[in-house]
Amino acid sequence: MSTTISEKHDETVVYGPRKRGDTGPSRAFRVMASPFGSLVPVFTILVLWQLGSEAGWIDPTFFPAPLDCLAALRDLASEGDLASSIWITVQRILTGFALGVVPAIVVGIAMGLVPWVKVIIDPVIAILYPIPAVAMLPLLLVIFGTGGTPIIVLAGIISFFPSAVNAMAGVQQNDQRLVQMARNMGASRTQILWKIVLPGALPSIFAGIRLSAGLALLGVIAGEFLAGSDGIGSLTWQYWQVYQISNMYATLAVIAAMGFGLTTVTLRVQRRFFNWTEGTTR
């Protein structure tokens, strides 16, 4: 008994400074978390894939070696088809995106500001939003015929909803304290709108724009798969149909790069202009 007690007394716990090395993320971690570092895992997979193909463990009929795909990409690029396809697709994405997002922001802000507009439009959105927009493609083909227009409209429709909903939420969730402060300072309703409510809604509006941008890409590629005669999506689809798998992978890589570019650019803009949100919006 007594020995146990004395043993307990001998015990000393020291809370001292941290040891060197365990203060925050390590250097290696920071490198990996950087935009450059994020390419490392992707690159590793590609290398393993290449080695696997060369060793004969991976069936090149379905998974052609990355270097072969790269060669295919180079050939496509030199034929000149690729650049024009990319350009067509990019134009469609931007047009559809603008067509969807600009009215979406106007409608969303109006819904947030004017209860009447919300009461009327909210049910319409509630019905349309859950419908997979791709399901509307046959209808759009009937209305707009073949060619680029139905694809652009599809992208517009898909990208409308997140921007509208986010713009509305951004306006509705404005900080009432700031509105009261401005009123006490003598602000008019217009001044409150332009100096408090709309700037306060910008982070949410931009979060919507980011979602819409991704969806515009999705809409155009899906439209081109199903109904396009040109554009990078249609090219991918054609290579699948004629079973030129390396070429298909090459164009897929182009689409992936487009998506990556879109995400990176919009993220940069967000970090640059909306850094005051203290991590409230992603």
């Binding site: 304290r177 009261q180 402060m181 006490n184 300072m185 408090i196 306060g200 005051w276």
Partner: peptide, 12 residues
């Protein structure tokens, strides 16, 4: 002019 308990400063 009001001075607010939670400051009511505009964050941006």
């Amino acid at each position: 002019s009001i001075v607010w308990q939670d400051y009511a400063l505009i964050p941006w």
